[in-house]
Design a protein around this nucleic acid. Structure first.
Lengths: 249, 249
DNA sequence: CACTGTCAAGAGCACTGCTCTCGTTTGTGT
DNA sequence: ACACAAACGAGAGCAGTGCTCTTGACAGTG
């Protein structure tokens, strides 16, 4: 693959001028492509990008072997951008605050990132692009934001700060052994306790959270809910409650 | 109560042979276009459709003035197909059953319709198509499936069969007056009681439900949950509980 | 019979992703 | 210092796209 930026020669750490120009060009192409993406939606034209850069279309292929590879690069960048935003937001919450505060902060950050980067959001959380097949290199960055959310809840659980639901509030355990096994695998990979009751609700909460962002961003809330921030906040609140995260007081 | 599929052609005038052939052609184009949509995703090529029909591409324009108009027709058909499926499923539930049974039936029907018609589902619940702007004629059919879900919950509420949440389970009322007003409008349009507490949870449930279908259909559950039917059923169960719909026994 | 509207066909325009070839530029090993 | 290979931008070209316009054939109606 592209291992340019790896000068494995100890005495020659000099990033050759050519390699630097190449990196700048690659970034510039991605930057212009993002502008086009924001303007024209997922219909990304290599020729239009090249025109904006004063190049001929074939020159783009020196940097990205195909339109799909460009899309892959943009997708990975988008996942990482969202992941960075989520991590940064979580990191800035005062650790003396309740875990619920971190949940709200990260949740709102994800929504705000989506509103600020609608094209990138649609790229990674919208319907699949027609001819495009996501390569494996995208799956790790894809999990970052969700992993951040999971960390908050898992740490709350580990700290014994989750109110375990009782009685009618509690979920009936599944009778499907395969499904139960899957939940255990998910619990392990996300850092929850073994057989944690909260894993399933966390998956539901993530589904709900991204469903809400989808609804807002794709216009499904038009003429229904205009106080979107309030609406989203209250959805987050319900989800926190469903996981036993004490609400802010 | 939204109008059903009103076949409201005022009087039936002479269905001239020409008009009949034209209608058949229109249907055939939509049929072939759907096949292509199912195969190639949202990249729909008029020329490919025309080739499949043994026509020249320009002939398509006798029936649809543009690609967008064809898409609009397909989108409306898709919304109505989903709406029909939801209504039919709801209609077949024995009315002596609990309202929860209707909720599960309609919910699972929506999911099954999406799995059976992934291309149509992506068309109506995926990210917006690049150059396409949905005309107003799509917004009424768009609400049908949601209206069906709402009817179930609203009728349960009217029958006094919703367990009103108490204490920690209850949602704190919003302090945002605009948002509260919006909720009242939604309540009125979906048939809920005025100031009904369940409206907000219903909106959340719909968000969650379609978020779950999105996750499954767009591959976000890959390598995470494979027992999708069980997973979805348990999500529906949580949603029913959150709205006070007694679970099946 | 003549008229009128509908139809399929074809040529053409501007656009797309992508390939290939052509000289030129640049970095590096000898 | 020189030579060679890799990298580069430009351009032509291919097959595909949505869409427009013109042309000639046909059908239904006066």
């Amino acid at each position: 693959m592209s291992a340019e930026k790896a000068p494995a020669q100890p005495p020659a750490p000099a990033p050759s001028i050519r390699a630097r120009v190449r990196a700048e060009m690659t970034d510039e192409i991605k930057r212009v492509a993002l502008e086009h993406l924001a303007r024209d939606g997922s219909a990304l034209s290599l020729r239009a990008v090249s025109r904006d850069m004063g190049m001929v279309s074939s020159a783009i292929y020196r940097y990205f072997p195909s339109r799909d590879e460009l899309l892959t690069a943009l997708i990975i960048d988008a996942y990482n951008s969202l992941g960075d935003a989520a991590d940064a937001a979580d990191g800035e919450v005062d650790r003396r605050d309740a875990y619920a505060a971190r949940w709200f902060t990260v949740g709102h950050t994800i929504r705000r990132w989506a509103l600020a980067h609608p094209a990138e959001y649609a790229l990674i959380y919208g319907s699949p692009i027609p001819g495009y097949k996501a390569p494996e290199e995208t799956i790790v960055p894809a999990t970052r934001a969700i992993a951040t959310l999971a960390r908050v809840v898992a740490e709350a659980e580990a700290a014994g700060r989750l109110r375990t639901p009782q009685g009618a509030d509690a979920t009936v355990p599944t009778e499907n052994a395969d499904y139960a096994a899957e939940l255990r695998v998910v619990a392990a990979s996300l850092g929850f306790a073994e057989d944690s009751w909260v894993v399933e609700r966390f998956l539901g909460a993530v589904t709900h959270l991204f469903g809400a962002v989808n609804f807002e961003l794709f216009g499904r809330l038009n003429n229904v809910v205009n106080e979107r921030s309030e609406w989203f906040d209250r959805q987050l609140r319900e989800l926190a409650a469903s996981m036993g995260l004490s609400p802010r007081r």
